[in-house]
């Protein structure tokens, strides 16, 4: 097999899988974000630290995310709407999955592009119709992938990346959410 390189260190992931099989405590991660209200529906959320492998960890640098609503919602549009961040998460996760699985299967990728569409009936959040849910009604992701592989192998890559995706799981399955006042 010619060496292929999608820039994913699959060996490190496979090694981690073996190590964590026998050390479930080390596999417990906590991801954290801290948010602050600015004004109106505008807020900023910063992310830097998380917990994992038994200790505090840190990203190389802090990232600040701005959330707001668009002008059609009579807001200032300082940033994307919170629900759009879910699309960012989904696209990022599935794309990372495609690259990792391709690396593991010896498939060289040349380009991976995707569009993500979330259909949202906003009568739910406005309280205009109690039968309409608040969240997305459905989400559609369309990948366009150029790689040294058959159409079928590419479909299998995309299927496997969903199977192993944290965000796909978080969106398709219910999660317990606790919201408290400190």
């Amino acid at each position: 097999m010619t060496t292929i390189d999608n820039g994913v260190n699959v060996q490190a992931l496979l090694d981690a899988r073996e190590v964590l099989k026998g050390a479930p405590e080390a596999a417990q991660f906590t991801w954290r974000a801290s948010s602050k209200w600015q004004n109106g529906v505008h807020s900023t959320t910063t992310i830097q630290n998380f917990f994992g492998l038994g200790q505090e960890q840190s990203h190389k640098s802090e990232t600040v995310f701005t959330a707001d609503h668009p002008e059609v919602f009579a807001a200032e549009d300082n940033g994307i709407t919170p629900i759009e961040y879910l699309l960012v998460g989904l696209a990022g996760c599935l794309t990372a999955g495609v690259a990792s699985v391709a690396q593991n299967r010896g498939i060289q990728l040349r380009s991976v592009e995707s569009t993500v569409e979330g259909n949202h009936d906003i009568r739910g959040i406005l309280g205009a119709d109690s039968d309409v849910r608040n969240g997305f009604n459905d989400i559609k992701v369309t990948f366009t992938i150029d790689a040294d592989a058959s159409k079928e192998d590419i479909e299998a890559l995309v299927a496997q990346s969903q199977k192993r995706s944290a965000v796909f799981d978080a969106l398709t399955n219910p999660t317990n959410v606790t919201v408290e006042v400190a």
Partner: peptide, 22 residues
């Protein structure tokens, strides 16, 4: 999961179909 007496099903049906078909 079950929540408030309701069964909640995964929205990932399409992918389990794809995996099995492939």
């Amino acid at each position: 999961a079950v929540r408030d007496g309701r069964a909640l099903f995964s929205g990932g049906l399409r992918n389990v179909f794809s995996l099995a078909d492939l």
